[in-house]
Design a protein around this nucleic acid. Sequence first.
DNA 1: CTAATAGTGTCTATGAGACACTATGAA
DNA 2: TTCATAGTGTCTCATAGACACTATTAG
Lengths: 233, 233
Amino acid sequence: MSRPRTTVTLTADLVILTIRSGDLCVLTVERGNEPFVGRPALPGGFLRGSESLDETAARELAEETGLDAGSLHLQQVGTYSAPDRDPRTPRVVTCAYLAIAPNLPSPRAGSDARAAGWLPVADAQRTVLAFDHNQILTDAVELARDDLQFRAIAPAFCQREFTIADLREVYEVVWGVELDKPNFHRKVTDSPDFLVPTGRKRSTGNGRPAALYRSGPATALVPPMMRPADAAF
Amino acid sequence: MSRPRTTVTLTADLVILTIRSGDLCVLTVERGNEPFVGRPALPGGFLRGSESLDETAARELAEETGLDAGSLHLQQVGTYSAPDRDPRTPRVVTCAYLAIAPNLPSPRAGSDARAAGWLPVADAQRTVLAFDHNQILTDAVELARDDLQFRAIAPAFCQREFTIADLREVYEVVWGVELDKPNFHRKVTDSPDFLVPTGRKRSTGNGRPAALYRSGPATALVPPMMRPADAAF
DNA sequence: CTAATAGTGTCTATGAGACACTATGAA
DNA sequence: TTCATAGTGTCTCATAGACACTATTAG
């Protein structure tokens, strides 16, 4: 056979999104090795031993953020296999994952001595990232924007207990829109099994305290949270 | 390192869906080699040379159906990497693709001497397929059902020119529902850039001839075609 | 004409959005 | 009290669905 089966190594790359001071941010690291030394990149690592890619992704997520992957939203975005995406041999094919995290205290710089930091997604998209990570980032963000409409993933951006205003901020930041507070409140509280009231309240010092909710068992949002036609994205 | 980088081979497996006499059908082949000799499986093949997985999938699709992948709907479903999914070494990880095809004259049995055939999806899901192909099939069908709501993929099931009734059959078969003819007609003809009238008509011998349409440039369906709450799936 | 399928009109119920209004806390 | 934010009521408009009706072919 002129073109035999190709052997490759696999990586899982992570697009870890969170919201920090009103911006949608992504975790980037500075590459410590060739290729692309010193260039910002998405965190990720090689499939090792007899892991599955999901396990690789969960392990990398724990290493980068200190968070248990079991408690976070983690899903595949797609697999990127262009032959020239990575100059190493054997070829490196990557499976990209989208992770959604609540606002973390601060990135754990230095678990493997690489500088890590949260970068607003808009800035990251204007930066030249290593490999095909610009494409991966764009695809992952688009996936997150779409999923917000139909799936109950917004609470993944929040702490375990959150207010309706917290949840609304997720939509507003990720979509780049303003939503009507009263209507939003009704929509999410009416969506069956989406939110579970805890009975507790949280006061921000100003104004009436807001009721606290936890994420409910629903995975789908019915009816969907329609993205306004004038959304920025 | 106790668990070094794992080298793997990659396959692209295809879930090729079409509609045949009122059933949603999937193309299956009988495996001619170990492992799982003689067992029905999804068509697929190894990444070779310096191709990308998309090219592998397109090549396999052309080999199995004789159709040019450029003209067909082809999208990734996900990557399946459980270490025990395939007993061979080096490990085999697969990237599953969903392809949607118009009703084809008949499967090209024998391009590589394996029996191939269209199997109703419901039957295939009750059959034990090779590898993790039952899981892949289920995921792909669910993806197709979801995408019908929001993306303009339904014409991929039809010939290049089709009637509104053809299009409605796609939805009814894939979702297992009956849709109101008048309302469906309005919805799809009102969706901007979804359908392009050709001016031609097609008569089935009975009744008023139906106008023929071609697929338009839109990729999204706005507003979405909501799946009835009583849909079978 | 009738039979059969394509396509339109129109009414009703439901959900989205605008926005006035009430509720509850802190200073 | 005032200020600020949480949450409710209610009106209007757009869309979904039910279904009566008209249109166009074959025989």
